[in-house]
Amino acid sequence: MKYLHKDFHGSLSCGFSYVTEKYGVEGFQEYCKEVARNVYSSLSEKIKESGLKAIEEHWNNIFTLEEGDFALYYEGPVLVLEVKECPAIAHMKKRGYKIAENFCEHTKLVNEELCRIAGYHSSCDYNQEKGTCIQRFWK
């Protein structure tokens, strides 16, 4: 039995709304940075050691486990993660969970901070309504 409880996406979404309401956009940004610094510190370390390969492996594992529709490829020195159907958005829609207005923004903020720590850059262009995004990572 694999550990996979997708309802957690709905709970986290509720948390994003709460933090934003209580502590503002700046509070939400600070929380996302805390997550990057604490939860993803080992990923930042791996990026320092192995470069973009570490990010590629991370996303490949996550999106395979969560059964997302995605592609990972390189455009020269840039790693691209193309999410064609986000498993978090798809699950929340299916279960009727309220999706925080800034839900997808967390991906952008967490990526930026964990990459910054490792000496890398990232961007994330998302369409929350469609549950799609294009994330780019480079040194």
Binding site: H9, S11, L12, K22, V35, N38, L65, E66, A88
Partner: peptide
């Protein structure tokens, strides 16, 4: 995307974030 497999750690961070600002009442 924070994976649902990483949710607990992100949730724990959220609790700590709120507790630091609003105490137990905030939580």
């Amino acid at each position: 995307m924070i994976s649902c497999t990483e949710f607990i750690l992100a949730y724990n961070e959220l609790f700590k974030y709120i507790e630091e600002r609003g105490g137990r009442e905030g939580l």
